[in-house]
């Protein structure tokens, strides 16, 4: 059983720099620090290109950090990438399924390859097929399934090996309303099971509904971190969208003398009414 007071994900001064021919060095992630705990949905909120996906890719060991460190379930992402990946499930719009496998074969494959105990695999697959309502098309090839069906199989394969940490990177991109609601429902269920969930999105309403704590990322830097209530208090704004915009304006230097304090509070200037570039 995971100790709820100990972070399952610990990120410290994490950095990632890419080299781009036209732009030179690009600091995609620039000194990000945060912790996540069991049973928590941690939201990473940011515009496109803010560094959300890069951060999550580093945590899932797809990318190597340029600086800083991070652990997942105590495993260092740079030193123990396989152990890290075994401890987490990664879901994003860019992680597709194998089109020529059936739904059941897909879940079976991801359960086995992620090191789930062999003798329990069949029972686990049956459980997931049942839980996500896949039984009707479990023997259908993935490329013949509807997008809603594929989404269910995708979620099932993400949680197949029962990892304590789950990463959902923009999971509702491209989904219709019903499928997006289904995704939100699943994330809530997983949270209730005590999973740590890192949830990135640029859709404010989703983050508001789902996340226990929110980190606002902008140009690779974590501008603010706190619960929705704390962020509201810090900015004096009610809606997350306004909160987000205030932080961005300050970061861009278009909000007068306002500054972001050490606890994410906005100080020394009035943000409201600042021009949006």
């Amino acid at each position: 059983m995971t100790d709820p007071s100990r972070p399952t994900v610990s990120v410290s001064d994490l950095r990632k720099t890419f080299y781009d021919e036209s732009r030179g060095e690009v600091h995609a992630v620039d000194g990000v620090t945060f912790d996540c705990f069991p049973g928590e949905v941690f939201g990473l909120l940011g515009a496109n290109g803010a560094g959300k996906t890069t951060t999550l890719r580093m945590l899932s060991t797809i990318l190597k950090p340029t600086g800083g460190s991070a652990t997942v379930m105590g495993h260092d992402i740079a030193q123990e990438p396989e152990a890290v990946r075994k401890s987490l499930g990664f879901y994003s719009a860019s992680t597709a399924l194998y089109p020529r496998l059936t739904a059941r074969e897909t879940i079976d494959f991801f359960t086995r390859i992620n090191g789930f105990p062999k003798e329990l695999v069949d029972a686990r697959v049956a459980d997931l097929v049942d839980r996500f309502g896949i039984s009707e098309y479990e023997n259908g090839r993935v490329d013949k399934l509807s997008s809603g069906m594929k989404q269910k199989v995708s979620i099932a394969r993400t949680v197949a090996h029962d990892p304590p940490v789950l990463i959902f990177d923009e999971p509702t991109v491209g989904l219709d309303v019903m499928n997006a609601l289904e995704m939100v429902k699943v994330v809530r269920e997983l949270k209730a099971e005590g999973k740590t969930i890192l949830y990135s999105s640029h859709i404010m309403s989703e983050v508001e509904k789902l996340c226990d704590r929110i980190g606002i990322l902008h140009r690779g830097r974590l501008l603010a971190l706190g619960t929705l209530g704390q962020l509201r208090d810090a900015t004096g704004r009610h809606y997350l969208e306004d909160v987000f915009l205030d932080y961005v304006k300050v970061a861009e230097g278009i909000a007068g003398d306002a500054e972001i304090g050490p606890m994410g509070e906005l100080e020394g200037g009035k943000v409201e009414g600042a021009p949006i570039p």
Binding site: I62, A83, R85, K86, L88, F90, A96, L97, Y98, I113
Partner: peptide
């Protein structure tokens, strides 16, 4: 092309 490359990179196999 099928976007399964990233999926594969996230499994625990080396």
């Amino acid at each position: 092309e099928r976007s399964t490359w990233e999926t594969l990179m996230t499994v625990s196999a080396s």
